[in-house]
Design a protein around this nucleic acid. Sequence first.
DNA 1: GTAGAAGCTAAAGTGAACTTGAAGTCAAGG
DNA 2: CCTTGACTTCAAGTTCACTTTAGCTTCTAC
Lengths: 157, 157
Amino acid sequence: MDGGDLLPIGEVARRAGIAASALRYYEEAGLIAAVRPEGGQRRYPRSVLRRLAFVRAAQNVGLTLDEIREALATLPEGRTPTKADWARLSRGWHTRLDEQIAALEALRDGLTTCIGCGCLSLRDCALMNRGDRAAARGPGARYLPAALRRAPRRGVA
Amino acid sequence: MDGGDLLPIGEVARRAGIAASALRYYEEAGLIAAVRPEGGQRRYPRSVLRRLAFVRAAQNVGLTLDEIREALATLPEGRTPTKADWARLSRGWHTRLDEQIAALEALRDGLTTCIGCGCLSLRDCALMNRGDRAAARGPGARYLPAALRRAPRRGVA
DNA sequence: GTAGAAGCTAAAGTGAACTTGAAGTCAAGG
DNA sequence: CCTTGACTTCAAGTTCACTTTAGCTTCTAC
C-alpha cells in the first residue's frame, strides 16, 4: 500500500464530486465523521466514499438530510457496514420511488383529461386537490412538489 | 346574482385553499392581480380562481413561480383567457412530466441493480452520476432531486 | 526554509416560497 | 357609536442545503 489510506478533504471532495464545504456541512449535520491527526486537519477513511454515495443516492430519491442521518444512524457501530447493511438501508427506496412515479403518472393523466376538458377547477379537479399544499404548515422553501414529499416518515430506508 | 362577483381575499383564500398571505405574495410576484375599490382592499374577479388553479397545478409539475409568471404572461391581455389558452399553457407539462417519470424510473431501475450488486460506488454507478448535483452552482435549498430539475427553460408551457 | 497550495473555524449570505408580527384601517352589525 | 372581524402594509423570520468570506494555520514541494 501507499502508507495508510486516509484521504484529505480535497481528495474526498474530488472523488465524490461534492464540495469540501459540503463535506464539512455534512459532518456538522452528523452524516459523516473524520479523524483528526495532529495538525487538526480532517482525514477520511476510504469508507466515507460509500457513505457519501449513499447520501447522494438518498438525496436523488428525495430524502432530506435529516432523514438520511436517521437512516445512517441505524448502521452498526464499530464494524464497517457490509453490503447487506447498505442494501437494507436502501430497500425502502424502491417503494418510495414507485410511489413517486405513480403520483407523477396520476398527475400527467389527470392533466390530460383536466386540461383537455378545460375545467381547471379547484374544487372538482383531482389534479388540484392531490397534495393538499395548503395544509403544509410552516414557512420555508417548499418547491418539491407535494406529491413527491408525502409520507416523510415511513421507516425511512 | 348576488350583486357583483368580486371576492375579498379571505374568500379567495378559502376557496383556493391558499393562504391570504400567499395570495399577497403572488401579487407581489406578478402572478395575480386585484382591483382596489375605495377603501383600498383587494377584490378579485372570479377568474382569479382559475389562474390560481393553474399556479397550483404548475407547482405540482415542479415549475418555479418565476416560470409560472412567464407562462402566465403569454396569456392575452384584455380578454378573459379561453379554454384553448389554458390548454396551450399546460401543453408542455405533459412532456415535462414524461421526462420526470422517465428519470425516476431510471433511478429506480438503476437502484435495483446497483444496490443489488452492492457497488454504490461513486465513480462507476450510474445512479450516482446521473444528475451531477456537484455542478449545480450557487447556494440555497436543492432538495428537489436534480433529475427533476433539469432543463428549467424549454419554452415553459 | 520558504512559497504557495490546501485546510481550518466561525459567521454570514443565498434562494425559493412563503409565514409571522406589529401597528394601523375598513366594513358590517347591533 | 362602538365593537369585532377582516383587511392593510412593511419588515423580518423560517427552512433547507449549502456557499462565501475573512483571517488564520498546516502541509507539500522545491
